[in-house]
Every structure is written in structure tokens, then in C-alpha cells.
Design a binder for these strands. Structure first.
Lengths: 399, 399
DNA sequence: GCAAAAAATTCGACCCTCGAACAAATTAAT
DNA sequence: ATTAATTTGTTCGAGGGTCGAATTTTTTGC
């Protein structure tokens, strides 16, 4: 049960009931489509008449559309309802240190357009390029009704100010991206940390345990970010900094991390760590030049080709991944922990190692499943679309 | 934004708006009392007329009462409204390994009766004694309207089945306490883990940062339990096991813990650890007999008397407490972390040590405050009352 | 062709909030 | 004292919402 937030609540107006129930309808259609009004009545518990009025309204607003009629042993045939795939206009932008991906999705989360570009060096440049492209796309598909833009960022975003906090891997200053992008496009903008976006992607589009309400994404890249969905809701914390488990110290006096402290999890288990392990095993004194030249993708490829040192580096990385995952599993005991990142290419190799470490380090009453991110090619992009979709499909903001 | 849980939702009925708004009213009165209808209108944004109707209803249902009239520079004087202290009937039961406390509280959370007894050896015995006493109290105060019973337990409770999971310090079997106590008393019963109860206590009755929505309680006793309130809601996880950060391994090959693994946080920072540190420093080979004879309260008392070895034991314990708290702070970045337990008697001594370790181990963009549990004598008991109060003051279960 | 059955719509009853008008109570000015 | 101004609190019809029964629509089986 939730405590009412007296600093930020909405009273119920006379239209509130309709708002609540039509959101429920939308979700039921999303889950069960194609579905008849009669079945919506049964799933929701609302009266037939109420379902009729609500669906009529949703159809007139183009959220739903009528489809074929179904077959029944006897009686009038049901008219199936679907989410209206033509309705859409959800933009997702995934900013990574070197590449930025962009997509336009419809109501069902399918990508209508997807493209990528090199990440601009400055926020100004980014805003200019992105908003121009968005305006072009809106002109290109004029029949869509545009709902909003979500931006996934490799850093944390302060919710109250909607500004960056702590984005070391991106050279941008603390910027008011939200307001500036809103002005440039005329659409509402939401910023989100990339690990949270990964979690959202699995939460809204993943096909594991249907009713999961607690899901944790471990996004492994240059660093390690953790996105948490607990009680069906992203946990951001008061400052947007929740989820920095990557900077929890595993040892008191380990290697120095970019954050300034020592022995952080991500020093041991990130892609950078994987590369470091590989290079250390090649030559006793790691060579700076080679180091910059070898990417984690290279290590993965060497491993796939059977390079023993690359495999050993992955194994070592997996062991530390397991240690951190054990912490999350023990402390938060979610339904699912999803690992996201290039490293999942070697999932068959690392999964047994992770499992073993987790088994050794956590007390296993919990039934958490540890899985690799699904085959969706762009988890961050799909997740950031989910962030925007949530505004229509999420629970109403009330009390 | 929350995802709607299609496995467990409530549609909006015509009475739903009233339910939502009267909960908001109750909370506004709780926060601002004494308060006039006119001010309720201003705080809530509802119409004067609506406020009038809702308060009338709440008064007739005895949730609110009218009080004195206020003073104003001009115009009609406002009639103040209060929570009706006479209304009550919230039972709280705090089960600890040796002692069980029980209280009867009113609507404002004040204790009307409070008593304690030795914890019965078996759940059967417990049920019999407790339900008899509750029936006696209900007969003794017949004017109260009894709302429910909350039970705080030193273990985790599975939400779906409402049965015990993992209660090592209590010798009871896995029991369906909830249903049996409900049958015996006729009141609704809710079970809760004691760390969660501590968190609730601070969340509902603490006077730190008014609008905090993310609060973590670290309950230090024989073991360490963590209660998490994130996004204004207890995090229990799918199985009720969330919060077992006490069993996160700080080192790979530390001492064996009761849970079967090695190096768990609570092996290093619980009261038992404090006692162990003290005894180890006294004699190189710890003596079993002395060990059982010395309690953590003894160590605290020795420390207060200036015993250097006791102080050193506390310092060591504090250092490890800091390590675990740093993990929670870095990973969850809540508004507040509250330390609960006997050890807070020595807060002046241990706080600087905890702060120092946290500073060293966490990257401190977060503005989390680390505090000791307030002077309320029975945090668990107050918290478990809050659990029951939540049913009236919490957000409605909707969508 | 008719009865049974299921889907979908219609319509009045009832619940709720809104907003304007009104009643009540109090102070300051006349 | 009387009146105007001001503020609190209530009353009441309008409008939006769900409920539930009755009705219409559509289909199958006899």
C-alpha cells in the first residue's frame, strides 16, 4: 500500500473514473488483442454498458480500432478490437557515447522508422540535429498524432530539475535538454537513464513471467548501470541517483574507479574490465597503446574464435558479474534480473559461472530468474519508447 | 509512473472518486490539524461544496470531529476539524525472540494500551494468548470501532500465502498465522517483517524531511534486516524476501553465517558480532560459556562506563555497519537511512565512524541523510500500527 | 420459422464533483 | 446602531460517470 504524497497529488474529478477505466481497457486490449467488448467486460468486471461507452470513446479517439468478427458456437459474433497501429508518434532517442539511435514507434511499440547517427559532441549540436530530424519525420508521416519523445542517456537525470547529473562518459555539460527539446519540437520530452530504459524494455515487452512486478536490469557497458523496477514502478530515488550499484565497493582497496573510490563493482565487471583482463593476460605490463586499440567486441570475437586468454578474461568478468548480481538478488529478490549488453553474446559461457557464484553467495530462498536480455536489437530504444507509452498505458496519477 | 497490474486491479466505480478524495482529506487533516474546511479546500483544490459533503460524511463515520472555532482578522470564524482520537481500534503486536509487545492505538497512532509478555514457545500458544487478550481489550473498550491487527515478525512473510518464510530466530513452524488470528478475533490481520515495520514507523511518524518518499531502515539486532520504502511503498518483492541485505556477502571467505553462506554483512555488523568482537578482545580464545552470558546490552553498558575493549568492539561494528550502509546509499540513494536497534544508544560514538566509511566508500552525489531511529520507544510497534493505519490513510487500490 | 444464446446498445437510477447562489458570522466604517 | 465588506460554510441544479435491467441485433440449432 502506498502512502499518499501530499506534496504531489491529484484529487479525483468527475472524469477520473473514466480515465482510470479507459486505461484499464487499453491495457486489457494490449494484452489480449484481438478481444471483444464482451470479453473486456469479463476481464474488467465492468458493466457491458460501461465497456461499450468506453470503447466507443477510445475508438473515436483512435486509440482502438474494430477488426474482424470472431466465431462462436452460437449467438451473435463478437467484433474484435485492436490497438490502432496507425496511431503512434512515439519518438525514442538512445544516446550512447559514440552513436545515437532514433526511432519512431506506434501505439504497439513497433518501430516505423529507425536510424542512427554519430553522437554530436555537444548538447547544442545534438539538440539542433535531433529536433530537425524529428520535425522532418513529423512532416513525412502527417497522419500520426505525435505523443512525445523519450531520451535514454548514459547518466543520471535529476527528476525535479530534469537536468543531467553525473554523466561522465558523455562530454556534455549539465543541460536542460528537456525544456529545450520541447521548445524545438513542440512535443513533451522525458529523459531517462539508460539502465532504467533497459529495465522498462524488458518490463513492457519481455515475455518472461507475465505478472512480474519486480525486475532489475544490469546494463553492462563501459560501466555498469542498474535499473530497478519495484512494485511495478521505476525506482529513481529523490535525486535520480538510485541504481548506482555499479559503484558499490566489492573490496575496500581495489583499483581506483572513475568515480574516485576504490574497488567498485564496475571496475571488476564492466566491458572495460573485460578488456583489461584480456590485455593483462597477454603481456605482464599492459601497453597503453594496445589497450586503446582493443575493444570489448574484439575480446568477444577472440573468445568466439577460441582464444583461451579472451575466454579467461570473460570468465573472470563473469565471476565478478555474479558477485554483484548475488548482491542484487539477496537484497532485492526481484522476479527477474536481466543482463543487458554486449557480454550477453557469450551468455552460454558466462551464465553457468554467474549462476555458480550467485548460488554460493546468496541464500536462495528467492526464486529470482537471471536471464540475458531478449533478442530485441535495441533494448534501450525499446525501453525509452515504453517510457513514453507509459503515459497512456500507465496507472493514472491520483492521490 | 506505475504499470497497471492486470493480475490484480480494481476498476473505478461511481464511489471511487469519493474514496480517493476522502482519503486525501483524512491525510490533509492528519498533517495540518486543526484545519478548517476552507483550508482543506485550498490545500486540496476541491470545491468548497465537495469538501463540505466529504467532511460531513467523515464526521458522521466518526473519522473526523469538529473542534474549536478559529480566529480571523475578519469574516466568519472557521470551525476546526481534527482526527477523532476516540476512534481507534488498531492493534499492533511486535513479536521478538524473547518478548512480545502489544498495543492498542487510536486513529492518530497514539497508544491507548501497551503491554508485553514473554514470547510463547509455539505459534499455537501465541495465537491462544494473544487472541484472548485482544478479545478482553475489545470488551474493555467497547466504544472503539476495531479496524485491524498488525503483527511484526522477526522473519519474512510470503505475501501470496501470508505464511512465514525464513524465520530462523523464532522457533515457529511455517504457519498460517493470518487466517487463524482473523478467525479467533474477527478482525483483519496483516503480518509484516520487523525491518519493514521499522521503516513504516519512521515513514509515517518520523519528523525528518517531510516529503521523503524513499526511506530505508537498517534494523540491527541479532541479525541485520533492511526495510525499504521506495516510491512511498514498502518493497517486499514477489516472495516477501526483499530486504535481506543482511545476507549480502561483504567478503568471499568470511565467517560462516546462520544462512549457510560466508561473510554476510550481519556476521560483521549485528549485535551478535559486537558481542563477539568484545569477547575476542578479552581472551584470545573466546569462551563459549562467557559468550552466552554476555549480551549486547552488556557491551553497550561497559562502553558507557568507559571500557576500552567494549568501545573498540563498538567501533569495529560501526565500521562494518558503515560498509553496508554505503552499499545501500550508493545503490538506492534514498532520502533517509534510519538505523534502528540497541546500538543507537551509542550513536554519538558510532555515527562519525559510519559517516567516514560511507564517505570513503560511496560516491556522494546523493544527499541521503543517515540518522538514528527517533526517541519513540517501540519503533516496531509504532510501525506495525502504521501498517494497519495505512488501510485508511494509504492511497486507494485502483488500476 | 422459431427458440435459444450471445453480443452490443439504450435508458433511467444513482453517485460524484462543479460552480454559482445563498446563508451565516464577524469586523470595520459610518 | 447600521451598513458594507469579508470570510466560512451550505444548498442545489448541471453535467459526467457507472450500474443494471430491458431491448435490439445477430447467429445457430431444431
Amino acid at each position: 500500500m502506498r502512502k499518499i504524497d501530499l506534496n504531489n497529488f491529484q484529487v479525483a474529478r468527475s472524469e477520473t473514473a473514466r480515465d482510470i477505466n479507459s486505461r484499464i481497457m487499453l491495457n486489457l486490449v494490449r494484452k489480449h488483442q484481438p478481444i471483444s467488448r464482451a470479453d473486456l467486460m469479463r476481464f474488467s468486471g465492468l458493466q457491458r454498458s460501461t465497456v461499450s461507452v468506453i470503447t466507443e470513446q477510445l475508438i473515436s479517439e483512435r486509440w482502438l480500432r474494430e477488426g474482424n468478427t470472431g466465431q462462436l458456437p452460437r449467438g451473435r459474433r463478437p467484433t474484435f478490437l485492436h490497438l490502432n497501429e496507425d496511431r503512434g508518434g512515439f519518438f525514442g532517442i538512445n544516446v550512447r557515447p559514440f552513436t545515437t539511435n532514433m526511432a519512431l514507434a506506434n501505439l504497439t511499440g513497433e518501430f516505423v522508422v529507425q536510424e542512427s547517427m554519430p553522437t554530436p559532441r555537444s548538447a547544442d549540436d545534438f539538440l539542433e540535429k535531433v529536433s530537425r530530424r524529428i520535425r522532418e519525420l513529423m512532416a513525412e508521416y502527417p497522419q500520426m498524432s505525435y505523443e512525445g519523445i523519450g531520451v535514454s542517456l548514459p547518466g543520471r537525470v535529476d527528476l525535479s530539475s530534469q537536468k543531467f547529473v553525473f554523466a561522465p562518459n558523455l562530454g556534455w555539460r549539465e543541460e536542460d535538454l528537456k525544456v529545450r527539446l520541447e521548445r524545438a519540437t513542440g512535443l513533451p520530452v522525458d529523459l531517462e537513464n539508460e539502465a532504467n530504459a533497459c529495465a522498462l524494455s524488458e518490463f513492457w515487452f519481455g515475455h518472461h513471467s507475465d505478472g512480474a512486478r519486480n525486475l532489475i536490469a544490469v546494463a553492462v557497458s563501459e560501466g555498469i548501470g542498474v535499473g530497478m523496477i519495484l512494485n511495478g514502478q521505476i525506482v529513481r530515488g529523490p535525486s535520480g541517483l538510485a541504481g548506482e550499484f555499479g559503484h558499490v565497493a566489492l573490496t575496500e582497496d581495489g583499483p581506483v574507479c572513475a568515480c574516485g573510490n576504490r574497488g567498485c563493482w564496475e571496475v571488476y565487471a564492466s566491458n572495460s574490465a573485460g578488456v583489461r583482463y584480456y590485455l593483462e593476460s597477454k603481456s605482464p605490463r599492459p601497453n597503453r597503446q594496445t589497450r586503446n586499440g582493443t575493444s570489448f567486441e574484439d575480446v568477444l570475437e577472440f573468445a568466439e574464435q577460441g582464444d583461451l586468454k579472451a575466454l579467461a578474461a570473460l570468465d573472470r568478468m563473469a565471476e565478478y558479474l555474479g558477485a554483484g548480481i548475488a548482491m542484487l538478488l539477496t537484497g532485492l529478490a526481484p522476479d527477474v534480473i536481466v543482463v543487458v549488453g554486449e557480454v550477453t553474446r557469450a551468455w552460454d559461457r558466462i551464465e553457468p559461472i554467474i549462476s555458480e557464484v550467485v548460488k554460493k553467495r546468496s541464500f536462495t530462498h528467492a526464486t529470482t530468474r537471471i536471464i540475458a536480455s531478449g533478442p530485441a536489437p535495441q533494448p534501450r530504444l525499446r525501453g525509452i519508447i515504453a517510457l513514453v507509452l507509459q503515459k497512456r498505458f500507465g496507472a493514472p496519477i491520483i492521490a
